[in-house]
Design a binder for these strands. Structure first.
Ligand SMILES: [Zn+2]
Ligand SMILES: [Zn+2]
Ligand SMILES: [Zn+2]
Ligand SMILES: [Zn+2]
Lengths: 156, 156
DNA sequence: CCCCGGATGAGACTGAGTATCAGGCAAGCC
DNA sequence: GGCTTGCCTGATACTCAGTCTCATCCGGGG
């Protein structure tokens, strides 16, 4: 099942209608290389001469976020963007500051660390957010790129 | 040296002028209990019948952020706020979701963890952000509150 | 095929943040 | 203390992401 279908399915499974707009947005999201903003999607939709309202894009992104199909990032430059996301378990994102490509990072030891910080300060911790920014192997363009890409089955 | 003076000093030390507006904002920031937004400061300034422009507040907060006197938070509810901040070393914030009071948290083991995540994925990590949200001892209102407060010399 | 509640798009609206610019004033210099 | 210069300021206009409204549309169950 390809990414687009997976996203459409997510809408269905959650009891939402399948509409042309949502199918289009699923394609656009699935076709994104790095992170993307609502405005990006709108541009790409317009390039395809597709008619979709701004509000619809925001609504779809909101839904997809609540379904954990995408996650909203707060970039260091103060803007926002979304990345596709493994819906199945809590994790964080390692984002390339150049191309926006993102890797899911398991919480791992962090959970323990967060827990301990809460205990030490007497806070009952409800949520936490970890965002990592750096240069991805592809953008660094070194031999490391090939090595890691091979590990993962090649560039997205 | 009290907090207000410390902030004014930060401006001076960085070579910026000391002006009535900046003194006022230093007071307002220093007098903040939890986190605060530009709009909060504007309100409190107006309450004092002080004349200060909106733009000036944004400019001051931008400066103070660059001087690491305050840090800008991205709250879970999508809004932004600032908290006062130890300017001396890299750290993160544990923020009360109810009252906004914030505790500085040393990076500690996180540095190692971040490093390892970068290595494992072939990214050269440039920056990271960790934000923790929960209920502070004071808001939880349990015996824990008194204990931790005593540890720290009482409520701010 | 019908119906209806969910979905849509156009466009108005909000509110945070930015840009501009003429005037003000801090601070170093004499 | 006055002078000068360049940083700083407030007012105002502006931008732009995101939200709201509402008349219309249409997916999909019956
Ligand atoms: Zn990259
Ligand atoms: Zn986590
Ligand atoms: Zn609290
Ligand atoms: Zn850190």
């Amino acid at each position: 099942m390809d990414q687009t279908t997976r996203i459409v399915r997510a809408f269905e499974d959650a009891g939402y209608q399948t509409t042309p707009s949502r199918r289009l947005l699923a394609e656009l999201v699935a076709g994104s290389r790095g992170h993307f903003s609502a405005a990006d999607l709108l541009d790409r939709a317009r390039q395809r001469r597709a008619k979709v309202g701004r509000a619809t894009i925001f609504r779809a992104l909101e839904l997809l976020t609540s379904l954990h199909v995408v996650e909203r990032l707060d970039l260091p430059n103060r803007s926002h963007a979304y990345v596709m996301c493994d819906p199945d378990e809590h994790h964080h994102h390692l984002v390339c500051s150049r191309c926006g490509r993102s890797v899911d990072v398991a919480d791992g030891e962090l959970a323990r660390l967060v827990d301990e910080i809460g205990r030490r300060n007497g806070y009952r911790i409800e949520t936490h957010r970890l965002e990592l920014f750096g240069i991805c192997p592809l953008c660094a363009g070194t031999g490391a790129a090939a090595a890691v890409a091979a590990d993962r089955g090649g560039p997205a």
